[in-house]
């Protein structure tokens, strides 16, 4: 299929990036993104917050600032209490307010299965757009949220996660990537994306595909939800993790010393995960420190970019 484009499209469909970017003038570009899904937590208010944090994240990953948003709602109005929808939307609105963005409209349809999400529009300077591509040898990789939400959500579904952990992971998924994005703006960042459904290595694979670089990931440096390692060892792993692994297997080499639970976390699909940042190697230590100082406590340097082998991810 051929998609028409025009000269003002900075990031279009051909790039498969986190969002589209369109130049309005020499100093302003528009970022557009949309995301929606079925409930991942039982509490409607928290679900609304998580859906909004997840949709907003794509704007942050492009180096932008979110400005406006529209609701997308699919709701089983005949079988479900409309109060639930109100709680969801309240969660979304509160999260948008925290992000400094406003809800300006939306659309709802009747559906058997509840779905909620948002289309978000943001601004960025055309020269400061961050994409997935453009990692350079010598860059370091920084991750701003711990991995394991997919596995923990599977344990929750299995009724095996204690209430305290449910709360912790819910808050983690609802946490905005705003502060992380603001902190990284002061550094020499070469590439950025957010970690979501394809898992850490799925998104990293997107960053290195196309050539020019390979990466080395230090499994022991990965920030993880500690309980997720236990649940992974018990086989409470979402099917999506295995699909992610199968899809990228050819690009990935994992050293035998990396234990299996940690390998599983590499492919665990994340909901509203952290930013994955490729920063000038000389600034990595300072960036992690600045992130931690700003309260992004679990930020960590997780790997480095190599000149080769190209398009390979080597985990040790």
């Amino acid at each position: 299929m051929v998609f028409p484009t025009d000269e003002n499209v900075i990031v279009g469909l051909d790039r498969a990036d986190d969002a589209g970017v369109y130049r309005i003038s020499d100093d302003l570009a528009l970022i557009q993104t949309v995301d929606f899904f079925t409930p991942i937590v039982d509490d409607p208010y928290w679900f609304g917050q998580i859906a909004a944090a997840n949709a907003l994240s794509d704007v942050y990953a492009m180096g932008g600032v979110p400005k406006t948003a529209m609701n997308l709602v699919a709701f089983p109005v005949k079988t479900m209490d409309i109060g639930i929808l109100r709680r969801i939307i309240q969660g979304g609105v509160d999260k948008l307010t925290e992000a400094g963005a406003v809800l300006v409209g939306g659309h709802s349809v009747e559906d058997k299965e509840l779905k909620y999400g948002l289309s978000v529009t943001g601004f960025v300077h055309p020269q400061r757009v961050l994409t997935k591509k453009n990692l350079r040898p010598g860059d370091r990789l920084i991750l701003t949220k711990p991995l394991g939400t997919g596995i923990v959500n599977t344990a929750i579904k299995a009724g095996m996660a204690p209430a305290g952990l449910v709360e912790k992971v819910t808050a983690l998924m609802a946490a905005l990537n705003r502060t992380a994005a603001e902190v990284m703006a002061a550094f020499d960042v070469h590439a950025c994306t957010d970690v979501t459904g394809f898992g850490l290595l799925g998104h990293l694979a997107e960053m290195v595909s196309g050539g020019g670089a390979g990466v080395r990931v230090f499994a022991r440096s990965l920030p993880v939800i500690p309980e997720a390692l236990e649940y992974a060892a018990m086989g409470l792993i979402p099917a999506g993790a295995y699909k992610n692994k199968e899809f990228r297997e050819a690009m990935v080499v994992i050293e035998p010393g990396v234990d299996r639970a940690r390998q599983d976390l590499l492919f665990d699909p994340q909901t509203s995960g952290g930013l994955l940042i490729g920063v000038n190697g000389t600034q990595a230590v300072d960036l992690v420190k600045a992130l931690k100082d700003a309260g992004i406590d679990e930020s960590a340097e997780i790997g480095e970019v190599l000149a080769g082998p190209e398009e390979k991810i080597w985990v040790l």
Partner: peptide, 15 residues
């Protein structure tokens, strides 16, 4: 009936 469940059951039994 699928490879993901097989892997998960294997991990569980080994644990």
């Amino acid at each position: 009936d699928n490879a993901a469940s097989q892997q998960n059951v294997q991990r569980f039994l080994e644990s």
